[in-house]
Nucleic acid binder design. Structure first.
Length: 145
DNA sequence: TAGGCCATCTGGTCCT
DNA sequence: AGGACCAGATGGCCTA
């Protein structure tokens, strides 16, 4: 995947507009890496004839591309160390959620020094409950100094 | 080498 | 009817 996202986008758009008549090579046309790989299906031995899927596949690739672009946009808003640390999609979602909580606590607490901890204590009356509670340490609180 | 992650294909369902 | 969205299946790549 050494292709820039701009190139990928234009390629996907091309694939969409010129929908399907190209059985030619492309990063993955027809049978990429997954699935049954027989999008043509009816070759020599095949009896059934399914409608061509290239156009639908191209649309799905374009949709996936847009989803990934959204992931990238979200990723760019999450501070990490190092700044360009690779995050999986599930990490992006979890960290983004956590970061939103952190920012929200920062607003409520009026400080950016461990706001999540402060906010938690304010909300819960400082731990008057009798039983021990687990204190979850916010990743972003740990980093802030 | 196993496990995690990902892209792609595909069929189903819902919506316009 | 066609497109968007989704989930399952599958195979490739990468890392511990």
């Amino acid at each position: 995947m050494a292709i820039s996202s701009a190139e990928t986008a234009s390629y996907l758009l091309m694939a969409l507009t010129h929908d399907s008549h190209s059985h030619s090579q492309s990063p993955s046309d027809g049978s990429g890496s997954g699935g049954a790989g027989d999008s043509e299906d009816s070759q020599t031995g095949g009896r059934r004839r399914r409608p061509p899927r290239q156009k639908i596949n191209a649309r799905e690739r374009y949709r996936t591309f847009n989803v990934n672009a959204a992931y990238e946009a979200l990723r760019s808003m999450i501070p990490t160390e190092p700044i360009n640390r690779k995050l999986s999609k599930i990490e992006i979602i979890r960290l983004a959620s956590s970061y939103i909580n952190h920012l929200s606590s920062t607003l409520q607490a009026g400080t950016d020094f461990q706001p999540c901890l402060l906010h938690k204590y304010e909300n819960e009356g400082g731990g008057a409950g009798g039983h021990t509670r687990r204190i979850s340490i916010c990743t972003f609180c740990l980093k802030s100094k």
